[in-house]
Write a protein that binds this DNA or RNA. Structure first.
Lengths: 179, 179
DNA sequence: TATTTTTGTGAGTGATTACTCACTTTTATG
DNA sequence: CATAAAAGTGAGTAATCACTCACAAAAATA
């Protein structure tokens, strides 16, 4: 791993644990095993570092959320597919989600990263809307928002206390409701 | 309004807008029209001020969430009642919710306020579980968690962009689903 | 009225922290 | 090999900010 990558992963963990504002760049540098100056050489400023992390995470999500252009899949299957994928992402990228949710309401991110986040969300909702429509739901747009909100909230509550939250059971329940 | 109240309401607004970490006590004092020292005289430290605000907000919520001990109401009605009340709270205390969600993931609140928040949540979920059970749902605990999460997320998404979010329509949709 | 308690002030302080910069080392390139 | 470019360092800096404290005014109490 390059120093740049070391910085990114150290910052991801620290931001996720402590929050952006409560994590000094000095601590990131220490954890990454580099000098503090290097952070600014690579990312310009602290916000730039955060942006790079979010960009990286969003790319992962966007990738794993690509819809099949396979016409063989039914809209209902596509919806269930989306649910399964969401829960998988939740489990596989816990640290990133923790960071994302921590940072979500902070003014600091009113930059490119926030815009990108919005775009990914809009893309997902649009996709869901289409599928709900094809599946014959009377209010596909609202249904899409509802499911999106539901998954979002489950992520939130799961992250708040991963060891005690009944994630598997919730996944089944949601799957059944839309399957 | 006393100076103490002035401080509380100024801080509520500023914390909700800018976040706790990004709001200097000097700014709160200026907005409240008092000296900075007075904040510390009344609340000990900045965290104490936050705690007082949250305590205040939670009292409001807890009050408005008191269950009827009226046995005349059916469990299904009680659930719908809860939904209606939640949406009402959302609209009536937008600023507090914005603060609460901003602060939710910050380590700073690992104090009495966080514990109280947990208690209110647990109380709500327990109540819902009971009603889902009486209403004959096979997995009342999970159903309660699901509805709780759903409302939580709708609040979140509504707060993110109040003017564009279809809150009324969502309320209807949720009400219908459980009515 | 005299005295104690509460409320209020604001200049000052020490600690923290994001960022700079002059410089060195390493890597790439002609 | 020579030179340029990129990567890396760490001491230093200016700004911010939570909090203190000596003191004053107001309010409560006796």
């Amino acid at each position: 791993m390059s120093n740049k990558e070391n910085i990114l992963s150290a910052a991801l963990e620290l931001f996720a644990e402590q929050g952006y504002d409560r994590t000094p760049t000095s601590q990131i540098a220490r954890k990454a095993g580099v000098s503090e100056g290097l952070i600014f050489r690579h990312f310009g400023n602290k916000a730039g570092l955060l942006e790079a992390i979010i960009r990286q995470g969003l790319a992962l999500i966007a990738e794993s959320m690509q819809p099949y252009d396979d016409a063989a899949i039914t809209p209902r299957e596509a919806i269930v597919q989306h649910i399964e994928r969401s829960f998988r992402l939740m489990r596989d990228h816990e640290t990133f989600w923790r960071l994302a949710h921590k940072v979500r309401f902070q003014a600091a991110v009113q930059d490119v990263a926030a815009v990108q986040m919005e775009q990914v969300n809009a893309f997902i909702v649009t996709n869901l809307t289409e599928n709900f429509e094809k599946a014959g739901y009377p209010q596909p747009q609202l249904e899409a928002l509802l499911l999106f909100a539901l998954i979002d909230a489950i992520t939130l509550h799961y992250l708040a206390d991963p060891s005690r939250y009944p994630l598997d059971a919730m996944q089944s329940l949601v799957r059944e409701r839309y399957g």
